[in-house]
Design a protein around this nucleic acid. Structure first.
Ligand SMILES: [Zn+2]
Ligand SMILES: [Zn+2]
Ligand SMILES: [Zn+2]
Ligand SMILES: [Zn+2]
Lengths: 160, 160
DNA sequence: CGCCCCATGTAATTTTATAACATCACGCGG
DNA sequence: CCGCGTGATGTTATAAAATTACATGGGGCG
């Protein structure tokens, strides 16, 4: 289970690679990667933090790409449904996927101080949750795994 | 990691025992288990499913116990803060705790067909999530673990 | 062209949650 | 008993998040 997002990195390639990967996958699957959808993904990719739908909508509005809530929600629905973005339930907010195209059982580490969010990959059926489900005879179709706490950077700050 | 909620059981004792346990803990810790708070907990205990704040508010209103949103939200805040109830982020709804008083790192199994919710206890620092956090240098303070799927009963129904 | 399918534009509304301020009850020191 | 602080409630208003419903537009295809 690896995780990115707290470490320094070439962030412009996050954006370029993210768009490129999604663009490729859309072509492959016959999905329409329209201007609004592309722009919303770009906006999300610019941050390693979660943005609220209305925060995204504000940016779209500034650019003349749409001004009513459904515009943002529809683009986000598309991205989430196809695994290009994720909703962080705890925050009512959305984040670009850092592993687009891959299989997908994400978990999130959310820093309460700087709002950074890292995405980690899990093995769905393994671990405590999978075991608890088997014990209960429950079949998991989808799981929300969101941890809140302090990222390495903010731990050092608060220790000072 | 055990879980209750999907199995048949003496449900009236769920309610009585739940109230009694919380009542005892409030006495012990000097917390005020007021009528509204007690009634909200009773309402939650009557179901092994999550209720929205406004759903609870409706019942309070019928009983003349309060009619504005803050009444319900304040009672729920109290219950959640003290570990007597939990918020299910995925549903924007609340559920009574089935292990009041105990240490508390809950995970939830939510049936999408019948809305039943089971609460399981986890070991916070163990498992995949704990490992991912350690790898990333992240310190978890709180985790939201919510699995969605089919409970045993509803699997049989849908198989038919 | 006429049609379907999908994406988009827009208005209105619903659902969820909080802010702000007034009031009340209880306990405690003076 | 009074005055005061603290915490719970009552009430109004508003904010924030999400959806419903209906109108419009553009591309592919027979
Ligand atoms: Zn980056
Ligand atoms: Zn941080
Ligand atoms: Zn029960
Ligand atoms: Zn079920």
């Amino acid at each position: 289970m690896d995780s990115i997002g707290f470490a320094p990195h070439d962030h412009s390639s996050c954006i370029q690679d993210g768009i490129a990967a999604v663009d490729a996958q859309c072509r492959a699957e016959g999905l329409q990667f329209t201007p609004v959808r592309r722009r919303v993904l770009e906006i999300l990719l610019q941050e390693h933090r979660a943005l609220g739908a209305y925060e995204i909508l504000d940016r779209l509005r500034e650019e003349g790409l749409g001004s009513q809530p459904p515009v943002a929600y529809r683009a986000l629905d598309f991205l989430v449904k196809n695994g290009f973005a994720h909703k962080i339930e705890r925050l009512n907010a959305f984040i670009a996927c850092t592993h687009p195209g891959e299989s997908h059982a994400p978990a999130f580490l959310i820093c309460r101080a700087c709002d950074a969010v890292a995405e980690a990959q899990r093995e769905p059926t393994q671990g405590q949750l999978g075991q608890a489900a088997r014990d209960a005879g429950f079949v998991i179709e989808r799981a929300v795994i969101e941890a809140e706490g302090l990222c390495p950077k903010c731990q050092h700050k608060s220790a000072a």
